[in-house]
Design a binder for these strands. Sequence first.
DNA 1: CGCAAACTCCGATGGAGAACCGGGATATAC
DNA 2: GTATATCCCGGTTCTCCATCGGAGTTTGCG
Lengths: 145, 145
Amino acid sequence: MELSCKCEYAVLALLTLVDHYHQGDPVQIRQISAQQNIPDRYLEQLLATLRRSGLVCSQRGARGGYLLAREPWKITVLEIINCIEGREIQTIKALPATLTVAKAVVHEVWQEADQAANSIFCHYTLQDLCDRTAAKQQIDLMYYI
Amino acid sequence: MELSCKCEYAVLALLTLVDHYHQGDPVQIRQISAQQNIPDRYLEQLLATLRRSGLVCSQRGARGGYLLAREPWKITVLEIINCIEGREIQTIKALPATLTVAKAVVHEVWQEADQAANSIFCHYTLQDLCDRTAAKQQIDLMYYI
DNA sequence: CGCAAACTCCGATGGAGAACCGGGATATAC
DNA sequence: GTATATCCCGGTTCTCCATCGGAGTTTGCG
């Protein structure tokens, strides 16, 4: 439903890190924000969150920057969303005090839909998205010629 | 992901209308808010939205209230969500000005997940939820005995 | 060593929407 | 005509999103 922009930024930023993954040196916020058109101060926050969740590593100081913490084919889109959207307490607070039977049924439907969406997100890795981007760019090139 | 409370309220309110569907007389906001534990002034707004979308009919004046506009098995959860969440412009504004290839790929994934969730929501009708609620109450009763 | 480049932490801002409350106008059954 | 309901207008509080700015800290390099 809601792409939430935060998640989009996070995925795009990580895709930039994938591009530079084969060479070992870190990528700076400036490079990412320039390539993906993301406000750099905002991106900084998102990268901090991703770092705290262990999806990226950071290197401080001059020539520093960010690196993927794992191989691109071992990071799913679901992980990124969960990390950014802060998913820990939802399932716990899903059963609050006044839980009528009707409420429980509605929540079941929502959880089912949630799982359906998550199974899609968990199916795609960063590598998959990277490959699809490359393929799409090839097609664009062919049209250009 | 986010149940959004608005949608939950709307579905619960409509479930109350289903309960009184076989008898033809309208149900007042007070009754619904009391049964489902929804703040009445807020519920009023939601019912106004549902009325404008043609999901419920209203009868003004004394002995007035709200009625389902259609049979309970002809109203899906997806319709309720779309009505409350105001879904019309998202697909159009999904392709804005600066649309890079990477952005397009990310949007494709999101749309895929969106469709997966929607296929769940569109699968359940109000009648289905009502039946499930009744079945669940039977089970609760058996445990009680 | 010292400086500059880069990340890190903290806080502030404006805007949007969610959730809620109140008052007065209007329509209808009795 | 009055009681009872919806309808419509507005306002408030709160949270979160997206963004910006400054001060502090770590590190590479000359």
